[in-house]
Amino acid sequence: MLVGQAVRDRFGASVPTGTLVVNVAGAFVLGLLVGGKAGPGWLALLGTGFCGAFTTFSSLALEIWQATEDGDRLEPTRIVALTVVLGVGAAAAGYALTA
């Protein structure tokens, strides 16, 4: 939430850019770990531990909910689409770099 607020204060973005950036970065790191054939212990520690703590599904869910309160269906749809498309792309890029 703090990253999102900082981005909104600085750039005035309507899409929760801070949460989007953090989640996409976490997907990239997870792609690096999986592509690099991290062992189960490292994958659990860094994939589940670090990436799970770094990324924030709860903030994403809250921001989607807040976007629906205005009655606008396009904004929450855009947030979900951007998160999924950029997250999968980032994970694929991380995987490709280390595979």
Rank of each mutant, 00 (worst) to 15 (best):
V88T: 13
V24Q: 03
W65C: 08
S58R: 01
W42D: 10
G26P: 15
Q66I: 02
S59C: 06
G31L: 12
R73A: 15
D72V: 07
S59R: 00
E69D: 08
L43N: 07
V22Y: 00
T68L: 01
L30Q: 13
R78E: 10
L45K: 04
L20R: 00
F28S: 04
L32K: 11
L82C: 15
A44D: 11
V84C: 01
V88R: 04
V85A: 15
G35D: 10
V21E: 02
L46W: 12
L30Y: 04
P40F: 05
L82S: 03
C51M: 03
G35F: 09
D72M: 02
F57P: 01
R78N: 14
L74F: 11
V15P: 02
A25V: 14
E75Y: 00
P16M: 05
A25R: 08
V85H: 06
A25I: 14
T68F: 03
T19M: 03
C51I: 11
L43M: 13
V29P: 02
A61H: 02
V29L: 15
P40K: 08
G87H: 11
T68V: 07
T48D: 03
W42V: 07
L20V: 14
V24R: 13
L32Q: 10
L86Q: 05
T17Q: 00
G71K: 07
V88A: 13
N23T: 13
G49N: 06
F50E: 02
L43G: 06
A53Y: 07
R73H: 14
L45S: 01
F28T: 06
V29W: 07
V80G: 04
A61Q: 00
L60C: 12
F28V: 08
L82W: 15
P76Y: 03
A27K: 06
G36Y: 05
S14F: 04
F28N: 08
L74T: 11
V15Q: 00
T17A: 15
L82P: 12
S58W: 03
G36Q: 10
L30T: 15
D72P: 12
L62M: 02
G39Y: 12
L43H: 11
R78F: 10
P76G: 15
L82V: 15
A53E: 09
L33D: 11
L32N: 00
F57E: 14
L74Y: 08
G49C: 06
D70A: 10
T17G: 04
E75F: 00
V24K: 05
N23R: 08
V80I: 13
F50Y: 10
T48C: 06
T19H: 02
F57A: 01
L43R: 03
D70W: 03
V84P: 09
L32D: 10
V15I: 13
G49Q: 13
G35E: 09
T77N: 11
V34I: 10
F54S: 01
L82M: 13
T48W: 00
E75A: 08
P76R: 03
G26T: 08
G49P: 12
L33Q: 00
T19K: 01
D70T: 14
F57W: 14
Q66G: 03
A81R: 11
I64H: 01
V22L: 14
S58N: 04
G35W: 07
L62P: 04
K37Y: 02
P16Q: 05
